[in-house]
């Protein structure tokens, strides 16, 4: 089986262990949700996958390329969307997308076609010539998402992409992600909105204390603990309790 992402024995320590012997796999063309309470190590793990942090231990492989041995090949295939959109206030969405396409070395004609499609789809076309400085959080998040998709990544990593979005924007973002998965793209996403994970993800991984404590489809998670027809929320709370491992995640 082809794997988009293979994480093996991953560990990262700040003032205390943030990620501890974490292992999981995301299949090619799969939508994978990574759930966990605050401070569980979700963001730290994804930042290591995206190449923003170096792991203390373990390995990360994206479509067979190791993130440490071959970082450029990995980055060429990956897009990272953080929870707080980081865009340039003084660029317009079109200029931002042109810059991102330049970073990823996408031919100008293809990048322009992709950019126009994405701006239309995300309903940003009317604002394509406005600088991002006055954009709302939702619009900024959509610009960041367009930037992540303009170079046709094979693996999209999203950290809480729906936080702070209105219902319409959230729906658009979800539609865009599902459409990419249909086209063969792999997605790994963290979210605190369990309904989103329940509806969108093919498989769900639950981490707590930096370790994977459960993984599978919703049916598999139900079957594993003899949980009948419990909702994901009930399963999640049963797995992690109501403990909040605040702050470690902030690292």
């Amino acid at each position: 089986m082809d794997y988009a992402l293979q994480v093996t024995g991953l560990a990262k320590r700040f003032d205390r262990p943030a990620v501890n012997e974490l292992s999981f796999k995301v299949r090619a063309g799969e939508f994978y949700a990574l759930l966990g309470p605050n401070g569980a190590g979700k963001t730290t793990s994804l930042r290591m996958v995206a190449g923003l942090l170096k792991q203390d231990q373990g390995s990360i492989s994206v479509f067979g390329h190791d993130t440490i041995a071959d970082p450029i090949a990995v980055k060429q295939m990956v897009a990272w969307v953080p929870d707080e959109p980081m865009i340039y206030d003084r660029l317009t969405p079109l200029e931002y997308l042109e810059f991102v396409a330049g970073l990823w070395g996408i031919p100008a004609a293809k990048a322009q076609r992709n950019a126009n499609e994405l701006l239309d789809w995300l309903r940003l076309a009317p604002h394509a010539y406005e600088r991002c400085e006055g954009f709302s959080k939702g619009m900024r998040q959509k610009v960041a998402l367009a930037g992540a998709l303009v170079h046709d990544p094979k693996l999209i990593i999203l950290d809480e992409p729906l936080t702070g979005l209105d219902a319409g924007s959230a729906r658009l973002v979800k539609d865009v992600l599902l459409s990419r998965v249909e086209q063969g793209c792999s997605v790994i996403m963290t979210t605190h909105i369990l309904e989103v994970a329940e509806r969108m993800a093919e498989r769900i991984g639950v981490i707590a204390g930096g370790k994977l404590i459960a993984e599978g489809t919703l049916e598999e998670l139900r079957a594993d603990g003899g949980r009948g027809d419990q909702s994901l929320e009930e399963i999640f709370l049963e797995l992690v309790g109501d403990g909040d491992m605040n702050n470690a995640e902030a690292a």
Binding site: G102, Q112, A128
Partner: peptide, 30 residues
């Protein structure tokens, strides 16, 4: 801060740039 400054709306043509020149032009533009 809510005001949106609009750039001229003449057709925006993407320029073919290497990643190095994309970074340099971005810095100059900002």
């Amino acid at each position: 801060s809510q005001t949106r400054k609009t750039n001229r709306q003449e057709a925006f043509e993407f320029q073919q740039r290497t990643n190095r020149s994309a970074l340099i032009f971005k810095e100059w533009k900002l």
